[in-house]
Amino acid sequence: MISAAYNFAYLDEQTKRMIRRAILKAVAIPGYQVPFASREMPMPYGWGTGGVQVTAAVLGPDDVLKVIDQGADDTTNAVAIRGFFEKTARVRTTTATAEATVIQTRHRIPEEPLTAGQILVYQVPIPEPLRFLEPRETETRKMHALTEYGLMHVKLYEDIARHGHIATTYAYPVHVAGRYVMDPSPIPKFDNPKMNDCEALQLFGAGREKRIYAIPPHTEVVSLDFEDHPFRVQEFAEPCALCGSTGVYLDEVILDDRGGRMFVCSDTDYCTSHRPSGPDDQSAAEWENAR
């Protein structure tokens, strides 16, 4: 009845043009959220439709695509999205960060520094950093226009008054190129410093909220803070239990119901390539067995 003949990378050319125009304006105005006519995608809103639309508009036959969710290539949603592009664009995919030209991500920035040839595409649930202070788009749009970011500082300061520190641990707001306050998507604040002066182009897609924004390479990205409460990233007491890396973001894995736990790299590609004897290392095997 229906013959499913879809265009390269699923989207029709007119939609791609519309998205491409929005991406260009986004790059021209770093951190500003460009409204775009987000389409219904064959995956649910909130599951990466914004990132998928941006990736589909950017992707070409020569690209090598990597898709991660929570830092991992093998999480179910990453697998589903990678499969979508393998099917609709027949592009080469990889799990190796360094090999990829386009990386679509949810909630993490890879540990390995990105390079000039790469584009990092973030999936964004709520693009508006002021949304939780002011739910109305009409109001937040005015606040951005007038650079009225005092409310955000008040909120962060209230945290300090109540808890002794800023209690925002992910989706930690940043100031881009000295103008727009931007939501970096729900990455842990651990990843925030990687956005600053990054070699790669960073694109953000929010499908349900119909917004695209961008950080060009070598752009100043500053996490909001106070002189007496400077921005600090999470620190982990122990190294990764599988590869021994320190200074990386770790996932906590609960091993049993008696308090047994281990901490392992959230970035699976980084972890695999940093294990002393590769992925067949003893502890990795033990862990797999424990599961």
Binding site: F8, E13, A28, V58, L59, G60, L201, P217
Partner: peptide, 19 residues
């Protein structure tokens, strides 16, 4: 080849604006 030519041209423009 409109699909691929447009994609390649867009990437050139994107790169031009990004750098």
């Amino acid at each position: 080849e409109p699909v691929f030519a447009a994609q390649a041209a867009f990437r050139a423009v994107l790169d031009a604006f990004a750098r």
